[in-house]
Amino acid sequence: MTTYDKRSSWQLQLLLLPCLLLIGALVIYPALYSVYLSLTNASLVGVAATHPRFVGPGNYLRLFGDGGFWHSLVVTLWFVLGSAVIGQFLLGLGSALLLRRPLRFKNLINSIILLPNAVPEVVAGYIWISMLAGGEQSTLNRLLGLLGIPSVQWLERFPLVMIIVANTWRGIASAMILMMAGLSAVPPEICEAARIDGASPRQIFRFITLPLIMPTIFLYMLVSTVTTISIFGFIYALTRGGPGNATEIIGIYIYNQSFTAFQLGYGSAVAVVTLVISIAIGLFYVRALKVQV
């Protein structure tokens, strides 16, 4: 390393310092504080509110025997798998592939797909309440009624599927943008050469395009998994976890533990376990997709 590099490295770290301070104070510190809370019986009401006790791994032991927690974890898993990994990804990739063609109305279609992504979570929540709630009266049933399709109590009968559909709706655009970017980095000459060699479009996609956009897919999977696990406001506005606890994703479960049962300590333990699981998923992506940042 030259003197220049050393000085430069020092200067570069200085440039990063404001980010470190802000993220450290308002992102990392609260997360660490949650770890501390998870080792106590901290509460928002009762004696434990003013005099929390250190309970060691108590909350974690309780968590492993808590059916509600496991249920919530399974719901979250399906939610992430259904909406982020499958729904948004397939529709986003499909849209990106199709929009590479020289179609008419291309910009219009592009804008339409982007629209739901710009909808704030509260608005999205109650747009979907209108669509799905209210039995026969729901907007979706009224629209389907115009086509002669009998009404279904969507949220009541298929709660989990419905929040997956709604969340897919919100996120097609982000998948599409990333996939478009990934695809635009694939040199057309390679595909052209393969075509001349007699490769079918499917083979070209499988053996040329897909490997080349793998890093983009990795980035998408990582970011969308993380953001989907942390979803709270949208589902809170839409179902509050109901009916029953059918849509109680982990964010809602933590909210219920912390602010309905007022058990901050236990709610924090759930958050910490969620963090650990997501780190495992992150590592899995890195290994499975064999990419580096």
Partner: peptide, 20 residues
């Protein structure tokens, strides 16, 4: 770290954030 820590749902951060 900074991307994975975002996995923590906001309700878990309310009280710590409020305190700091």
């Amino acid at each position: 770290t900074i991307i994975l820590v975002r996995v923590v749902p906001p309700p878990a951060l309310i009280v710590p954030l409020y305190k700091i």
